[in-house]
Amino acid sequence: MSNEIELIKDPGLPAHVHRSTDTDPKAAARAERQVAILFGLSALGTITLIYSYIFIKDDVFVFIPILGQTHLQQLGIGLGMALALFCIGAGLIHWAKTLMPDEEVIAQRHEFRSEDEDRSEFIKTVKEGAAAAGLGRRPLIKTTLGAALGLSALSPILLLRDLGPLPKDDLSKTSWKAGTRLVTDPGDRPLRPEDLEVGAVAQTLPEIEAGAHRSLADIGKDAVLLIRLRPEEFNLDAERLSWTHEGIIAFSKICSHMGCAVALYEQQTKHLLCPCHQSTFDVTRAAKVIFGPSARPLPQLAITVDADGYLVAQAPFNEPVGPSFWERSS
């Protein structure tokens, strides 16, 4: 039997198939127009983005059946950017596939096998290292090392439990419900309307039963700001106005942008300010966003008084509090 290895003959490349744009000038011109149209649409998308950012007011909304009530400025910016990036990419791909040179180039592949002497030296070195480590002569170490390495692979799986269970509807609900009293934070003292002067601000939480404990998660969702204005200073529709009581209005303290605490109130302008990213909300218009990256007003809590004259919630929040999250209902 011959020790020689018969080399496989290089079959070469298949016969080159010319594209229609290589042989037909009309097809090439048509492809050129298609690429130009894609680039033109990309430019139109960029113009749409710029126009939306500069000229569309941030208080204009449009209703889309699939998306619901949508901020028109942000919709224009998003669609414009998507059109610009998609069409410029599609244009470049179409240009490369139809008009750029279509020539195959053969690059000869050479043998990368090391010399026999180098291969033998490498094997010798590995065997000497294994012998020096003594794994073959120390089965106890070999066994325990294998067990240690195998068990260590379970650590990442175990640590994944720190991600916690799925939130289900926890992100959409708070502790507020109809009849829940508003109590001071700190202090847990129930509030009456006369406790707040015009221009005053108070941070409140829902009252809990004696001996009960508030979790940090609940505090993070339940915090509410009470602000008292003169009733004639509000610019609200009838429904929103019915959620106030004697000029007292209540909003979630959790910013609708990234979840920071909205902690600054400008008494002269009647504006609430988030210190993290400067989102600004107009209290007189149901915490409407007038500046900053936030896309929606602060959720308003409908309030009234109970039979004892204490401020209570009329109902839970009508929408989830805090920043956007997957499957948010509004």
Results as ranks from 00 to 15, higher is better:
residue 172 S to A: 14
residue 153 A to D: 07
residue 142 K to A: 14
residue 165 P to Y: 02
residue 170 D to N: 08
residue 160 L to V: 03
residue 182 L to F: 00
residue 175 S to Q: 06
residue 170 D to P: 03
residue 166 L to M: 08
residue 153 A to F: 13
residue 174 T to W: 02
residue 147 A to I: 14
residue 179 G to F: 03
residue 180 T to D: 00
residue 147 A to E: 08
residue 151 L to G: 00
residue 154 L to G: 07
residue 147 A to Q: 10
residue 162 D to I: 03
residue 175 S to G: 10
residue 158 L to C: 06
residue 169 D to K: 04
residue 177 K to D: 12
residue 162 D to F: 12
residue 155 S to L: 15
residue 154 L to A: 15
residue 181 R to M: 04
residue 174 T to F: 02
residue 165 P to Q: 06
residue 172 S to H: 06
residue 180 T to Q: 04
residue 176 W to R: 00
residue 157 I to L: 12
residue 160 L to F: 08
residue 152 S to I: 13
residue 154 L to E: 10
residue 145 L to N: 12
residue 162 D to V: 05
residue 144 T to P: 01
residue 144 T to N: 11
residue 179 G to N: 05
residue 168 K to R: 09
residue 167 P to Y: 02
residue 154 L to D: 04
residue 171 L to Q: 03
residue 153 A to V: 14
residue 153 A to H: 09
residue 168 K to I: 07
residue 172 S to I: 01
residue 147 A to H: 10
residue 149 L to R: 02
residue 182 L to R: 04
residue 136 G to H: 11
residue 146 G to W: 07
residue 187 G to K: 01
residue 146 G to R: 06
residue 140 L to Q: 14
residue 151 L to T: 12
residue 140 L to D: 14
residue 168 K to F: 13
residue 150 G to V: 10
residue 164 G to Y: 01
residue 157 I to A: 13
residue 137 R to M: 09
residue 185 D to M: 03
residue 145 L to E: 08
residue 140 L to F: 12
residue 142 K to E: 10
residue 147 A to C: 11
residue 185 D to G: 02
residue 141 I to E: 09
residue 152 S to Q: 13
residue 139 P to N: 09
residue 173 K to M: 07
residue 143 T to H: 13
residue 149 L to G: 11
residue 147 A to P: 00
residue 136 G to R: 07
residue 136 G to F: 14
residue 149 L to Y: 05
residue 185 D to W: 00
residue 181 R to W: 05
residue 142 K to I: 04
residue 144 T to D: 05
residue 184 T to R: 03
residue 144 T to M: 12
residue 168 K to N: 11
residue 183 V to L: 01
residue 168 K to W: 09
residue 139 P to V: 09
residue 136 G to K: 10
residue 148 A to T: 14
residue 149 L to V: 15
residue 140 L to A: 15
